[in-house]
Design a protein around this nucleic acid. Structure first.
Lengths: 158, 158
DNA sequence: TATTGTTATACTCTATAACTATA
DNA sequence: TATAGTTATAGAGTATAACAATA
């Protein structure tokens, strides 16, 4: 679709593909270090920030709500997450990270050293330039949306 | 690990996370458009470039060889891929894309319009700057490795 | 009636281990 | 004996459809 795509753009897309592959591997490795799957790690990080109804987790993960049941079950079985009723609406269940869950999420973030390894190759000035380019690329929403995002999160907010 | 990570780096990592999420969604959507899973699409693109022993596919996908059996089975069942014996070593089976498989891979590449949507926001000059930054970030190997890569490929070549 | 979360089901991807046929 | 590919098995993620409780 659209114009034939010039060599420069093709190369940039390829490079982005490489970044994606590397980021993804890093993320999975970091999750595995804590005996978590990628999906579990994403949910745990989400809940470490704030409690969330099951439905909202699904929206953030871009998957069906029925899947979240199992993921939260497994996190709950390990004491990383708990389910609490929502006082305002008794249909809703809030998933909340336990103290252990928050601690695990924090360690998880620490071991996701994408910041060091590949990014360390760039000077502060270069990182600033990269930031500006990525901001422009992702559009105005980017400044808030992805401040600490995980792969495949890509929320539509709700 | 390593230094406390300054706010700038944190933001850049977050932005990269957003790019990763978006790229991944795009890729899955494009694959689904052709009734393929992400893994199937990755293998098909790989084989559209050149035939490959099962073992090598696994290395590119960074998964166990036993998984490739099923993925290639499903692609073969749809006539997108074939298995051929390797004349040089009768233990080896080469997976090769059929004409239909190559055509599908080509259409797949066309519908992966990451190049248009987010990247179109950047001018040619900006794309060049982005290319240079990503090259430096990924290191010297990047120029060859990811020219048309898929998420999670991230090959170690072999 | 509509919505939230769950259950039931089926498929794909994943790793591990055991097997076969070559080498 | 070592290697390539497969099979068997089990766990996890995914979507769909049907269901209970609540709104």
């Amino acid at each position: 679709m659209t114009p034939p795509t010039d060599p420069l753009t093709t190369e940039v897309v390829g490079l982005i593909g490489s970044v994606v592959a590397r980021y993804h591997e890093e993320y999975e490795r970091a999750a595995a270090e804590h005996a978590l799957t990628g999906a579990q790690a994403r949910v745990l990080r989400l809940l470490a920030e704030e409690p969330s109804p099951m439905r909202r987790i699904a929206a953030r993960l871009r998957c069906e709500p029925s899947n979240v049941t199992g993921i939260v079950d497994r996190l709950a079985a390990r004491g990383l997450v708990e389910r609490r009723p929502d006082p305002a609406d008794r249909r809703v269940k809030l998933a909340v990270a336990t103290a252990l869950g928050k601690e695990t999420a924090s360690r998880l973030r620490g071991s996701l050293d994408f910041a060091d390894e590949p990014l360390a190759a760039l000077s502060a000035g270069e990182r600033t330039a990269l930031r500006d380019l990525l901001r422009r690329m992702l559009g105005p929403a980017a400044e808030t949306s992805g401040a600490d995002s995980a792969p495949r999160s890509g929320e539509t907010a709700d």
